[in-house]
């Protein structure tokens, strides 16, 4: 199967730092995400992975520079968060939620037939089309995570940012997820992926960065994910840097 030329951007982090109050969350983080590649970001809890994503998406007041180098004009960014903070008893179906994401027509009105087709298409990509009219709160954590992945596919993205998308997935969900991100890469989409499952990163990522407040290593998973490096990363105390 041939890969298309990258339509996604390269991302350059240069000396990115983030301090909240007196706590240093990120310090001198520099790395490059190649266009059209899957770039895994791993590290211990509290190591700053999600914070780096917040910086990338403009939601944290960081120092340093983050440059998104689009091939032509700025494209579409899809984002898959770790979780949604909503009332589980809310009478909101998967279709309602997806309609709220993809259109400005109020979600309490039935979506237009064309919108419905787009939504069902995105849900089909993650194997959730038969759950379209279930309540969001009645889905399992893994099913909800698949819906979150589906929303990032509407409209077709050029850059996808994933924040631990596999945390709640069962085996079937994980297989669907892997298929979707490999399809995206084939289309030339850039994928920046925070993940805790090192085996999945080894299988899928083209590049991986180990982050614990600062970058500890980076490169091809085959080369850098050695037992020694991983042990060092997860036993690294970010505070020891100061």
């Amino acid at each position: 199967m041939t890969e298309m030329a990258p339509r996604g951007p390269a991302i350059l982090f240069e000396d990115v730092s983030l301090t909240l109050g007196r706590t240093t969350i990120l310090s001198d983080v520099s790395l490059r995400v190649q266009a059209g590649r899957i770039h895994g970001l791993i590290g211990p809890n509290g190591g700053g992975k999600s914070s780096l994503i917040r910086c990338l998406l403009g939601r944290a007041p960081h120092g340093g520079r983050i440059g998104i180098e689009w091939p032509a004009k700025a494209g579409i960014v899809g984002y898959v968060p770790q979780a949604l903070d909503f009332d589980r008893g809310l009478p909101m179906t998967v279709m309602d939620f997806m309609a709220a994401i993809v259109t400005s027509r109020p979600a309490f009105l039935s979506p237009k037939a064309s919108t419905k087709q787009v939504i069902l298409g995105a849900l089909a990509q993650v194997g959730m089309q038969d759950r379209a009219y279930r309540r969001m709160g009645a889905l399992s954590g893994g099913e909800r995570q698949r819906v979150m992945l589906a929303q990032a596919l509407m409209p077709a993205p050029d850059l996808v940012v994933l924040d631990e998308p596999m945390a709640a997935l069962d085996r079937e969900g994980a297989a669907v997820f892997e298929q979707v991100i490999l399809d995206l890469r084939r289309k030339g989409v850039t994928i920046f992926w925070v993940e805790h499952d090192l085996d999945a990163v080894r299988r899928l990522a083209d590049e991986v960065t180990g982050l614990s407040r600062t970058v500890l290593f980076g490169g091809s998973p085959d080369h850098v994910l050695t037992s020694e490096q991983v042990l060092n990363l997860f036993s690294h105390r970010a505070g020891a840097l100061s």
């Binding site: 917040r54 998406l57 939601r59 968060p81 949604l84 903070d85």
Partner: peptide, 9 residues
């Protein structure tokens, strides 16, 4: 209200 970062993106 569900996810400010997703909304912001």
């Amino acid at each position: 209200s569900f996810n400010p970062m997703l909304a912001s993106v």
